[in-house]
């Protein structure tokens, strides 16, 4: 039995905002199946009462002085933008158009 189906990979691609072609989906489905089967070995570890570690250092509430410093000028912030209009990032349509 495979660890992950092609349909599930297609769903992951949608969630990941990756418009994959059919042949890419076939290819990735086989590879992800192999990878997931391998990483699933972590489930063998009896770790019921072990606390999870999300980070190497035990840091909480790190503060730095709240000092005013210059931000990016509009021209610098927009210099690498794919499209600009009136000092703003121009983006494709975000909302569905009204009928």
């Amino acid at each position: 039995m495979s660890a992950i189906t092609r349909d599930e990979v297609a769903h992951l691609a949608r969630l990941s905002r990756l418009a994959l072609a059919d042949d890419e989906l076939d290819h990735f489905a086989a590879q992800l199946d192999q990878i997931i089967e391998s990483v699933a070995r972590v489930r063998e570890v009896a770790a019921g009462d072990i606390p999870p570690t999300s980070h190497a250092l035990p840091l909480t509430n790190v503060f730095r002085p709240d000092e005013v410093r210059p931000g990016l000028a509009p021209d610098d912030a927009l210099a690498a933008a794919p499209a600009v209009e009136e000092d703003r990032f121009r983006v494709p349509r975000i909302l569905e158009e009204e009928a």
């Binding site: 990735f28 990483v39 570890v45 770790a47 606390p51 999870p52 570690t53």
Partner: peptide, 29 residues
């Protein structure tokens, strides 16, 4: 692309505890 999809899988509901959560416990061990 593989890693983005793998990570999305490991974090998705229904798999989170079995994969990402378990990996974090292994990190403790």
């Amino acid at each position: 692309k593989r890693r983005i999809m793998l990570g999305t899988y490991a974090l998705s509901s229904g798999y989170y505890d079995a994969y990402y959560g378990q990996a974090q416990k292994v990190r403790t061990l």
